[in-house]
Design a protein around this nucleic acid. Structure first.
Lengths: 157, 157
DNA sequence: TCGTCGTGGTTCAACTTTCAACCTTGACGG
DNA sequence: CCGTCAAGGTTGAAAGTTGAACCACGACGA
């Protein structure tokens, strides 16, 4: 490796192993998930998450800012994405009447139907790729580890 | 949730929690890593991995196919990426003299220097985002979990 | 020797994301 | 009132990735 000896912040062998395993697993996982969603629902994963986020809001609606946070995309990417979803008729956008600079995105019935159709296949793929391969205590460990990395309380929903 | 009752392959609450934690952690991780590499080295992570893969080969060279496997990209993406890296002078491409349909990519000295310059910052970010936040046994658990998901033996390098 | 086939790479068009610049709306102080 | 300012969203161009079609080289049988 490069400059292995002088830099004290280099990775140990165990860390190196874990990091590389993570990179491999992550690649395979996203390849499988994206492919499944694209093949069965012609939907990028980010768009699927937008539909999910909306479906879990009261009234199936949210402001663009909220939605960006919930779905984990940048405001810009969200705007483009919602534009496409709106063109498909799955989401509708309208300016809030009380607060003219807020835009509310609403999941339409067609959008909800699309989500209902897409969800089982996607969840099945998540199960096949992750939870079918892990023991129950590993599931708990994974939640703990990911919460630590995300800097959150693991008891959160 | 949607159709919670009828489908036996739905996620349990624990699995749901782990999956959402994973999504959050993964997003934050890649946001941080991509931003660091882009800011400090103007290098997408995929390109960094290509340089790393080449640097670890004997003679710092590999065929495009090998390189695609090692760096975990599609042949198409690799071709584009190596085109850019070649334009920067960090990689050079030449057709194999014995086997005319094989293309060998070689890491140049400039490319290696670039990698040496970029590596400490990137590794530091990996450490900050992951290993500084995990206990030693969690590192082992992570390796185990990721190996299971990737379908590999955890003892592998 | 020649046609066919498969492997190794590249190219093209479509799509997504990002970054920066921009527009609009409401708040606030003078 | 009016000018300034920040918050909320959008837009456009550039960059990267993807999947399909495509080209080039070499192997192999007739």
């Amino acid at each position: 490796m490069i400059g292995m000896t002088e830099d004290p912040r280099w990775l140990t062998d165990d860390e190196q192993r874990a990091w590389r395993a993570y990179l491999r697993a992550n690649r395979m996982l996203w390849a499988a998930l994206d492919q499944q969603l694209q093949r069965d629902s012609r939907l990028p994963h980010a768009y699927y998450l937008i539909l999910v986020a909306l479906s879990e809001r009261p009234g199936r609606r949210a402001t663009m800012s909220e939605l960006a946070t919930l779905a984990g995309t940048s405001p810009s990417a969200l705007s483009h994405a919602v534009g496409k979803l709106e063109a498909q008729g799955w989401v509708s956008r309208c300016r809030d009447t009380l607060n003219g600079r807020i835009v509310l995105a609403t999941l339409t019935d067609e959008g909800f139907a699309e989500l209902v159709a897409a969800a089982p296949g996607h969840v099945g793929e998540v199960r096949r790729m992750i939870f079918d391969r892990l023991a129950p205590d590993q599931v708990a460990q994974l939640a703990e580890i990911c919460s630590a990395i995300a800097g959150e309380d693991p008891a959160w929903p």
